[in-house]
Computed example of a mutant assay.
Amino acid sequence: MKHLFKPIRRPCIKTYLFSLLVLPLCAVQSAEAATISASAVIDWSTFKITAIDIGNGLPTLTWSNQNDNSQVNYGYYYANDSAANWSSGTTATETVSTSSYSKSASSSTSISEIKSNAFIDGVFPYQGLSASSNSQRSGSFTVQGSGLLLFEANYSLTEDVGTSSNSWANSDISFNLSYYNDGHSGSVNHNINRYISNGSAPVAETDVLSVALVFKDGWSGNFSANTSVSVSGYDYGSGGGGSVPLPGAFWLFGSALATAASLRSARTIRMMKSFAKVAG
């Protein structure tokens, strides 16, 4: 039994064993799941239009048309849904799932909210994934009387890229208001945009979105409320999920190094044996 283990003590055998153990370990790196999300919501249940007297009485408005639209984007394609009023609502959704990752995007309008969502989760080595969506509620109106019209509603924005590397999330929300009459026009907008990338703290924000303009009797106006979000990530295969295969040159170099080490060890043994014979 003693003789069976004797070859393992030889330096050349040890070198080969070391190579067989270490090189495969170098070929694989730990996987890390990516979780990236973004959401933008206008709480339509809080939407209101306030008429403010600026010395000419209180103005009123009459809607001439209303429109809703929801859209999601995925590569060169998109899904879209629209409605010619603010009560029926719209919905657009995209979902892609595999054994290792999933991504989704959705947008909607309803009597209670205008919303956009995007989400990526899982591991996708050596791939880039993205998802985006947007929704809009718009309308045209005419004004009777003169005065200031204030449009406002509550909103919320959330974003998170977790500990994922090479990722980002973006959310955007806005109110746009304009007037036009006999060659005169004006506009105002309130836009809020939040962007985070790897290493950034998550976003969780709620506040009030508002716009206001002075209208004169008989003027026409346009109004729109918009939400949009997008998320993206690219996994280079290191620290973002999956194994990292080493190039063939590395294996050739490793084999050559192990062979050189073993030959050197064998040569050293032969030289020592020759020296021992001469000394004896």
Rank of each mutant, 00 (worst) to 15 (best):
F5W: 03
K6C: 03
R9G: 04
P11Q: 01
V22W: 08
V28A: 06
A38Y: 05
V41S: 13
V41Y: 10
S45G: 04
T46Q: 00
K48I: 07
T50F: 00
I54H: 01
L58E: 02
L58T: 04
T62G: 03
T62F: 00
W63C: 04
N69D: 14
V72Q: 10
G75F: 08
G75S: 03
Y78D: 11
Y78T: 09
A83F: 04
A84Q: 13
S87N: 04
T91P: 01
A92P: 02
E94P: 01
S102P: 00
A105Q: 02
S106H: 06
S107Y: 03
I111P: 02
E113L: 03
S116Q: 06
N117E: 12
V123T: 15
V123K: 14
P125N: 07
Y126M: 04
G128F: 09
A131P: 00
S132R: 00
S133H: 02
S135F: 11
S135P: 10
R137K: 15
G139C: 03
T142V: 09
T142P: 03
A153V: 00
A153W: 00
N154M: 01
Y155V: 05
Y155I: 06
E159M: 11
S164A: 15
S164H: 10
N166I: 10
S171H: 00
S174M: 09
Y180I: 09
G183Q: 06
H184I: 05
S187H: 08
N193V: 04
N193F: 01
R194P: 00
P202N: 12
P202G: 13
A204F: 10
A204Y: 09
L209R: 11
A212E: 06
L213W: 02
K216Y: 14
K216F: 12
G218D: 11
S220E: 12
F223C: 07
F223A: 09
A225Q: 15
D235E: 10
G240N: 12
G241S: 14
G242Q: 07
P245Y: 05
F253M: 11
S262L: 07
S262R: 08
L263G: 13
R264S: 15
M272R: 10
K277V: 04
V278L: 15
G280V: 12
